[in-house]
Computed example of a mutant assay.
Amino acid sequence: MTGLFFILLFWLAGNALSALTGGYVSGNIIGMVLLFASLCLGWVRPETVRPAARFLLGAMALFFVPYGVGLMDSYHVIADNLWAIVVSGILSTLVVLLITGRTFQSLDRRSRFKRIQHLRRHD
């Protein structure tokens, strides 16, 4: 029960902070970051939250039922815009892959360059 209290407390705090800041970031995300920070800082013990978290993860499939029903209810809207959805999904995936790949290559190149400089200084 204590673990569920902490999870709901941070969820509520995240939603309150989201509302106070204009809702630019979802309250769920803010609450999750706050809970993670409190676990890292030792304010909340992981043993306290673990049983409730495992229970919620085990029941996660139930949380997707409303979204599935909403998709089935909006089938005609999805069917009318299917090409736009497919094209935007493919293009956004390609853009993310390209940017991620270029970022990794750049960071890897910098890392290798620093490693070579470090080895040259110690020789």
Rank of each mutant, 00 (worst) to 15 (best):
S111T: 09
S38W: 08
F6M: 05
A61E: 07
N15R: 02
L4I: 03
Q117A: 12
V44I: 15
Q117P: 09
N15Y: 04
L17C: 02
N15L: 07
A13N: 05
S74A: 11
N15A: 03
Y75F: 10
L57Y: 13
S88I: 04
M72F: 15
L39V: 03
F10V: 01
L35C: 02
V65W: 09
L56E: 00
G22C: 03
L4D: 02
H118F: 14
F6A: 02
G31S: 00
R109M: 06
L94P: 11
T100A: 15
T100G: 15
L119F: 11
A13W: 15
L56M: 04
A61L: 08
D80E: 06
S88R: 07
R110M: 12
M32Q: 03
M1K: 07
I29L: 15
V95S: 08
E47T: 02
A16I: 14
L9I: 04
I90Q: 02
L41R: 07
L107K: 13
L91S: 05
R102A: 07
G70F: 13
Y67A: 08
M72H: 08
V86G: 00
T21S: 02
Q117C: 10
D123C: 14
S111P: 09
L119C: 08
T93W: 10
G42M: 11
L82G: 01
R112N: 11
L98E: 08
M72I: 07
G89E: 08
Y24H: 06
L98Y: 13
L4T: 02
L71W: 01
V49K: 02
R109F: 09
A19C: 06
V87F: 09
S74H: 06
A13P: 14
G3T: 02
L4R: 02
V49H: 03
F10A: 00
T48W: 14
G23A: 06
R50M: 13
A61P: 10
H118E: 09
R45H: 14
T100W: 11
R109D: 06
R54G: 04
L12I: 05
R54H: 05
F10C: 07
T2F: 14
T93A: 11
L91C: 05
R120A: 07
R110Q: 10
